[in-house]
Design a protein around this nucleic acid. Structure first.
Length: 271
DNA sequence: ACGAAGCCCTGCAAGC
DNA sequence: TGCTTGCAGGGCTTCG
């Protein structure tokens, strides 16, 4: 569910409510997420003050006074600020209770998400250490994409979804970015010209920025930290539109599978 | 090193 | 009305 824009929307939604606040307690109702929530976590968190809420790829980082809480929303996770006394749902696995009487609640039906603690610099954590550049920074551009893709036979769509190449580009936005620049999703990454790499890097940045500005994409029931839905879904041009006419040329949008993920593209516009 | 596939898990829609 | 099947926004891990 959450791609980079949704995680960023969540970060912006929760940051003003938790920065400077003290964690009174942590409630773990189901520790079986992607990796089990460690037993000592609540003890570690009690009394900690949140100093910053950052994002690295799709990981959210709650920097505290003596360590960092690393959160990932997986495929179906969401974070909401609720009243600490709010009714608890079936998939509300984890709460951070603050001195304000509010709780930061992690809901994640599929439990692909994660809640981890690190006392060290989070960038050195094994899960974050090998991640590629952020797509919305100067580090990521056409020259980088070109250089990284040389010699790679992987389909360009899977290439840009690889977190070691660039973080935060999930299935929806990979599809949308490739459509915008007319690149066929199955084209070998290493065969893209420098020119096309530049356009693609720009399109990835553009689609992510637009989605963030719209508050993310709402599919099923995604909501940002402030509880408001995102509005980018109505702007999607090919994602989940198999059989519908291409908004540019009218040709029926096609669907194929790449690495167990659905790909949508216009067979006329994308080469 | 790369590349493809498997797997973690629940919910929902479609088909019979 | 039920059942079964396949698919869903991610990404680590394993195997060749």
């Amino acid at each position: 569910m959450p791609e980079l824009p949704e995680v960023e929307t969540t970060r912006r939604g929760i940051a003003p409510h938790v920065i400077g606040r003290t964690i009174r307690d942590a409630v773990i109702r189901n520790r079986r997420l992607r990796w089990p929530i460690t037993h000592g976590l609540a003890t570690r968190l009690r009394g900690r003050q949140v100093q910053a809420v950052e994002r690295r790829g799709k990981y959210l980082l709650l920097r505290c006074d003596c360590g960092t809480l690393i959160l990932h929303l997986g495929m179906s996770g969401s974070l909401r600020l609720v009243d600490a006394a709010a009714a608890v749902g079936k998939h509300d696995h984890f709460d951070l209770l603050f001195d304000t009487g509010m709780a930061l609640r992690l809901t994640d039906p599929r439990r692909f998400g994660a809640v981890l603690w690190t006392a060290d610099e989070p960038a050195q954590h094994p899960l974050l250490r090998d991640l590629g550049p952020e797509p919305l920074t100067a580090e990521f551009d056409g020259a980088y994409l070109f250089a990284r893709s040389r010699g790679r036979k992987t389909a360009i769509k899977q290439f840009i979804m690889d977190g070691k190449v660039v973080v935060g580009v999930g299935n929806i936005y990979a599809n949308e970015a490739l459509f915008r620049v007319g690149i066929h999703p199955a084209r070998a990454a290493g065969r893209l010209s420098h020119e096309r790499c530049q356009r693609l890097a720009a399109a990835i940045e553009e689609v992510l920025r637009e989605a963030i500005a719209q508050g993310g994409t709402t599919l099923r029931d995604f909501v940002g930290g402030d509880g408001k839905p995102g509005y980018f879904a109505q702007r999607l041009r090919v994602y989940d539109r198999a059989g519908e006419p291409c908004p540019v040329c009218g040709t029926a949008i096609k669907q194929l599978r790449q690495g167990q993920r659905s790909t949508y593209y216009c067979p006329h516009c994308q080469r």
